[in-house]
Write a protein that binds this DNA or RNA. Structure first.
Lengths: 340, 340
DNA sequence: TCGCTTGACTAAAGCGATTTAGTTTTTAAA
DNA sequence: TTTAAAAACTAAATCGCTTTAGTCAAGCGA
């Protein structure tokens, strides 16, 4: 059973390639191919299991029916979940997805965007390093369909689906305050990403709303490259301050994991001595000792909305109205934040 | 700055498309294009940022420089890690990767394989449902380059990179025995996958090697669809047996997570009342209470070897000799298995 | 009977590369 | 001076499909 091509069908059935192509693309009626001929073509194609070569179709139509997904790291469970949702939804709409991990390098990201363009993807979903202003502007200039997720460029007018980081942190901080915590620390990476900045502001604003003065000593900003080394010092600082903290907000899941490791080493009891909460979570945060109160990212919404918006753009349908979305986080209250 | 094509370069420089194509594909010398002309072409291409259209190139060369990755679930941290490694390595060798999740459905898998073939991927990496004998045989028949990872078909002659499941479980079970455990339970999903079967046999063999009689009551096999409901009963059975178990081996990371949840609910002390060990781990298994002793999967080896073998096949290089690999697991000893 | 639709098709150009099989000019050897 | 070989190119076919702009015959009203 050798591979069969359009022209083979045409030859075997003594019709033109045009007829075959039209019929198999559901344009038979529109182009007045007789029912009989249509049936012959369809039956023959099915019988021989004909499938169009996508490269050829893509070249001809100028569409590859593929979308590119560029994220910092597919091995990060957060992006892996999004990838899973994006793929499912995209397949439903007839698209495949190619992915690549930028590893937070703007150069990689830039090169990956270019590479995907060469490969003629029809659109891009990007969780950017946020250091590629130019590249993003270039996409805009050439009018290429794309959407930013998770991270966006506040001063570039693009489509995006991001999370309400500010509100997420603000409400978890408020939750801590409601539980009677007064000296709340904040451990983060250096706020190069707007998302991280917003988390800090959420923390700020929660304190402000409760007339708690902001103490610089309570805010630790680590280098993303060395946070594992730096976090120990940060935690010691917080708990040996003249007025030690009674709670810590970690601004990412990996900081929480690292921080918790240190807290265990230092034999500090969570939540009795210090309560902790985490932005986002890892697979077993409910099993950790104690189970970690976490801000939950709405991965389904991010993934599904991103695909909807992107494909609406690609196909110029125009049925999706809102193309800049800020979605709300959830809150999973567990033991690590303590109780009243 | 409009998009530039091969023919534009040819026209601007008053040379043939052939010359341009040859030069830009590093075949200038071989085809005796003068150094001067080569330089003009290369300079012009760089200046105008020319990049070949991959669809056209692919159609023409019959190669897409893309590989397909089909896995059960990209949101599972184990496969996400593999995907990350595969992508990195593939990019290094000039390939992009398209992925799709089969969700353990043979029908999905089958359809995805077909779809990837239509899309002219150059090769496939598949972590199969192991229920697609026919599809795999079909790939073999049409001589299509592919490699199985994680799961393979014992009676089909294919390339693969799998893990030594038997040895992994055998040695962790031996470890438990060395610590003095005598009544070791085994909680698994129903062994439809060969990998799972091998884990069971590893358990068998460790007991046998130590002259510990095998007790059917100590082995629980759950349905993958309802393991979350069934695991409670399984655990209760094990700990209320006439001779209750003093240790449990969980055959997958999600079973461990679920099991641990139940053990907490039942207020059973780990490792004092019952020691536990896990095949593979989740992101925070070192932070769980108690930290979980886990068999570590060699994801780097799986990913890298799979790509090496596949691309050696695709490009018919023949430098990779071993194309059926069984790689060893590691063992991370933590608290949950107790001490002597 | 003429011209106009309509139905049922098809030829051929085009998508943007790659590559085979030449062609022409120059150089070098006999 | 002839001729073979080497150097420096190029025309055109090809990859497999889509789509535009027809063609041709039959049917129909005036």
């Amino acid at each position: 059973m050798n591979k069969i091509y359009l022209k083979d069908i045409a030859k075997s059935l003594q019709v033109s390639k045009t007829a075959v192509s039209l019929v198999l693309n559901n344009k038979g009626d529109e182009h007045k191919i007789s029912q009989e001929t249509q049936k012959r073509i369809i039956d023959f194609a099915n019988k021989h299991n004909y499938k169009a070569n996508h490269l050829a179709r893509g070249l001809s139509r100028g569409k590859s029916e593929t979308i590119g997904l560029i994220i910092p790291n597919i091995a990060d469970i957060f992006y892996a979940k999004i990838a899973s949702i994006v793929e499912k939804k995209a397949k439903l709409l007839g698209y495949n997805v190619v992915f690549s991990s930028s590893n937070e390098s703007p150069e990689n990201e830039s090169e990956q965007i270019r590479s995907m363009l060469n490969r003629q993807v029809d659109g891009l979903i990007i969780a950017s390093t946020q250091k590629n202003q130019e590249e993003i502007n270039h996409l805009l200039e050439i009018n290429f369909p794309f959407i930013l997720i998770d991270r966006y460029y506040p001063n570039i007018d693009t489509n995006f689906v991001i999370v309400d980081n500010h509100d997420g942190v603000k409400s978890v901080t408020q939750h801590l305050i409601n539980l009677g915590k007064e000296r709340i620390g904040f451990i983060s990476i250096k706020p190069e990403l707007d998302a991280i900045k917003q988390r800090l502001y959420g923390y700020h604003d929660a304190l402000k709303a409760n007339d708690i003065p902001l103490s610089k000593n309570y805010i630790k900003e680590l280098n993303i490259e060395h946070y594992q080394q730096e976090i120990k010092g940060a935690i010691i600082d917080l708990i040996t301050a003249s007025k030690p903290v009674d709670a810590i907000v970690f601004s990412t899941h990996y900081l929480t994991a690292s921080g918790l490791r240190e807290l265990k080493v230092l034999k500090i009891k969570v939540p009795d001595e210090v309560a902790i909460v985490s932005f986002d979570e890892l697979g077993a945060f409910d099993l950790v000792d104690p189970a970690i109160t976490s801000i939950i990212q709405p991965v389904h919404e991010i993934g599904n909305d991103a695909v909807d918006i992107l494909i609406d753009d690609i196909e110029k349908i125009g049925s999706v109205k809102e193309k800049k979305k800020i979605v709300k986080t959830g809150l999973m209250i567990r033991k690590s934040c303590g109780t009243k």
